[in-house]
Design a protein around this nucleic acid. Structure first.
Length: 219
DNA sequence: AGCGTGATCTTT
DNA sequence: AAGATCACGCTG
């Protein structure tokens, strides 16, 4: 009997998984700020060398726009570092900062228009032992609760810059749309220019959202 | 609250 | 060639 229930549960779970499709190109073809909110709850997936998967549910993002947003790397135009922000939506923009951290962004806006969504935090869903080893911590809420942490956990570095979410080792899995009242907005973290824009989006109350100094994660 | 870290960009 | 800045994380 117990066995039967387990099999039924498994089957049901697999069905649910089966219904959740890989996100295709059209999903990313929307304004960056809207994309930043719609990405919350979606599942970022990387297949690693041994064939297994690292998965994380996106719980915190920030929007960056080339035009009219002085906090964006591309606000003064194209340079060698920021050029991936001008690519077509659905590619990864990965850069190095503060002498030690890689930042993961998903490119938005049509080709030749700069825009991207910074992935700031994820909730680990698969591959946690791999992540624990890379992060050197045992606490789940410390694996991917920050933009530098999640790239370390998922072994994402400069070599991932420009990779596509529509082929190869990276993709996003769809997930049910979140109720609007579960999504919070705030100003972006760690910037000086254009600091008043409420372009940070997060899932209210989720323990994997990054801790920010003297600000709220509640609204 | 302070500091390591190094690539990138601006200014000389 | 030199200096400033930086979409951060860790220790204390």
């Amino acid at each position: 009997m117990t066995c039967y229930i387990i099999i039924l549960t498994r089957t049901f779970t697999n069905c649910i998984d089966g219904l959740m499709q890989r996100l295709e190109k059209q999903f990313f073809e929307r304004p960056t700020l809207e994309l930043a909110a719609k990405l919350l709850g979606k599942i970022f997936v990387r297949r690693i060398a041994d064939g297994s998967f690292l998965k994380g549910r996106i719980v915190e993002t920030e929007a960056y726009l080339g035009f009219g947003d002085e906090a964006c790397h591309a606000w003064r135009g194209r340079t060698e570092r920021n050029s991936m922000m001008f690519a077509e939506p659905g590619r990864l923009y990965v850069y190095f900062t503060y002498g030690s951290h890689y930042m993961l962004n998903i490119v938005s806006e049509p080709e030749q228009t700069a825009g991207a969504v910074l992935i700031r935090a994820m909730e680990p869903l698969a591959g946690e032992s791999f992540m624990r080893e890379r992060r050197n911590t045992s606490l789940a809420a410390n694996l991917m609760s920050g933009p530098g942490k999640l790239t370390q956990a998922m072994d994402i570095d400069r070599s991932c810059n420009g990779r596509s979410l529509f082929e190869g080792e990276f993709h996003l899995e769809d997930a049910p749309e979140l109720p609007e009242e579960t999504i919070g907005s705030s100003t972006r973290v760690g910037i000086t220019r254009s600091r008043d824009l409420p372009w940070r989006k997060f899932i209210i109350g989720n323990p994997h959202v990054s801790r920010v100094k003297a600000s709220s994660n509640t609204k």
